[in-house]
Every structure is written in C-alpha cells, then in structure tokens.
Amino acid sequence: MTPLPQSPAAVETRLPATRAGFMRREWLPIMLFVLLALLPFAAMLGPEKYTLSLVTRVMIFALAAISLDLILGYGALVSFGHAAFLGIGGYAVGILAAHGVQDAALQVPVALLASGLFALLTGAISLRTKGVYFIMITLAFGQMAFFFAVSLSAYGGDDGLTLASRSKLFGLAWLENDRFFYALVLALLIGCYALTRAIVASRFGRVIRGAKENPVRMEAVGFSPFRYQLAAYVIAGMICGLAGVLLANQAEFVAPAYMAWQRSGELIVMVILGGLGSLHGAIIGAAAFLLLEEILSGYTEHWKLIFGPFLVLVVLFARGGLLGLLARVRGKDRADG
C-alpha cells in the first residue's frame, strides 16, 4: 500500500477555522449554488422551459451522484447498483400515484423508507464482501431490482408508467410550475449537500474515511467498520431514493430503465469525472456528463464515440477529475503570477 499524499478530506480538516479559510475552502460550491440560483433569470431570455427542464435534470442527477460519492469517494465502496435507488424512489411515486396517493407528503416518506430498507438488506449482505466481489454483488442486487420492476405488469412492466401529473405538495399543484420545481430541487440539492458535508466531517465520517484507507488499522483501534459502512450505505441509498422521487416528477414517467446497470455505471462515471471524494465534484461531474451528452447528441447519434475517448482522457490526464484539473490550473496561475 503506497501512502497517499493527502486526501482532500484530510486537507480540509487541517485548514484554519477562520472566515478566510472558510471562503477558500467553500468558494467553488458556493459559486456553483449561486450560479444555479441565478440561472432561471437568465433562462427567461431564451427557451425557458427547455433550459429549466435540462438543469433540473442535472441537479437531480447531481443529488444522486452526491449520494454515491458519500460511499464511493469517502468509503471506497464501489456500488454498481446505485441506480436501483433512483428506481425505488421513482416507483414509490408512480405506484402510489396509480392508487390515487398523489401527495409528496406521503410519497416521500414511503420512498425514503423503501430505499432505506432496500439499502439495509442488500448492504448487510454486500458489505460482507470486498473489492471486485462487492462490485459484482451490488450489480446483482441492482439487476434484481431492475427485473422486479420489469415484472410489475400492473404498473406498465417493461414500458413503465406515465404519471397523470406531478406530485401534489400538501394538496397543492405547485410542482406543475417549472420554476417552483426548479427551486425545490435546488433547495434539496443544497440541503443534501450540506448534510453529506457535515456527515463526512463528523465522528461518523472519520470512521468511514479511515476504513477506506486502512480497514485493518480501524479494527486495531477497536472499530468494526461494517456497522458504520452499512449506516453510510443506507444514508446514501435514501438520498438517492429522494433523487428518484424528483426524477419521476421531472420526467412525469417511471420505467425499469431508471435502474438499468448502465445507469449505475453512469453515476459512477459522473462521480469520477467530477473528482472523487469532494461532494461538489459530484455536482460538476453530473453537470459535465449530462450537458456533454445533450450537446454531443445534438450533433450526432454516435455521440458516445466522442464521449468515450473524452472520459478516457479525463481519467488519464486529470487525476482527481475535473476538480483536480481545476485545482492544477489554479495552482499554475498562482505560480505564474
């Protein structure tokens, strides 16, 4: 095991707790959120509906990617079945709506409970394995969820299920308003970002980060990492379940494709593309992924032929993802001037 120079998580805890230190550490996520908050105003000048819908989608996937980064970036738990939670959240909305329960006040708790339970059961089994086996077993559970959804013929089976409308909010149809929906998704993104940020810096987070670097050392100071990793897995699953609720509302449609293994792979790519283990890197990664997909697919239907090599380049030349690239460019600026 070669010693890592320093993980971002370790660096962050060492910076002084001054206001200047806070700004230096947080300028990027703050700028990201300010940008996202201002965007709807700019969108009014152009094709507003299209822009809001695209960026809302980006933020929803950012939420899912953040939840994955919590376990992947901070815990080195390479879950290849994370999209299952998107589907569970989505189907909670779809199935409840099909039975006349349209209020988010009920749909959200059910979605969180279902994703949490699924995470608890599958995590308790998956986390007994390590490395490649963990990847395979999470993939297997993800596929089980996928095929279970396919088998739900009462709810559209393979074809999925179209929602009659977006969820109500305490009986009100506010979510039908794209601007309101955008604001709600942004608020949830910021909220979950702050939550996960607090978690990784907490006592609990330190155990997760330590178990990532050296699990034997953790046991040799008296921790059994399993329980902590399982708790993190459940938290991540629930946040991703929430993203699933939002995704179903954004698309007004749910289908087994939400849980396809390709989707899980895309989530992993987003997190790595942005930069593992920073949380806001996951937002940048999700945005880069979906925007590139949107732009490239406008030029050619073979956009993956361009996207694939681009990913390879990022992984090869931008260690630490886009965030790492950014940090290096900034470092150079400072050295030059």
Binding site: P3, Q6, V207, G210, N214, A220
Partner: peptide
C-alpha cells in the same frame, strides 16, 4: 499500519474516539 491520509493528530484522535464511543454522531 497507520492511516496515511490522516494527520498524526487525527490518527491518534481516531483511537481516542474508538475508546470514547459515540461514533454514530453524524
């Protein structure tokens, strides 16, 4: 066997934390 990405202080504080408990504090 240490945790290379943690500072020396964090490595030792981690062991103190293991002894004191409350490691589910989020």
């Amino acid at each position: 066997s240490i945790i290379p990405g943690f500072t020396g202080l964090e490595n030792v504080a981690l062991a103190v934390q293991a002894r004191l408990g409350s490691s589910f504090r989020l």
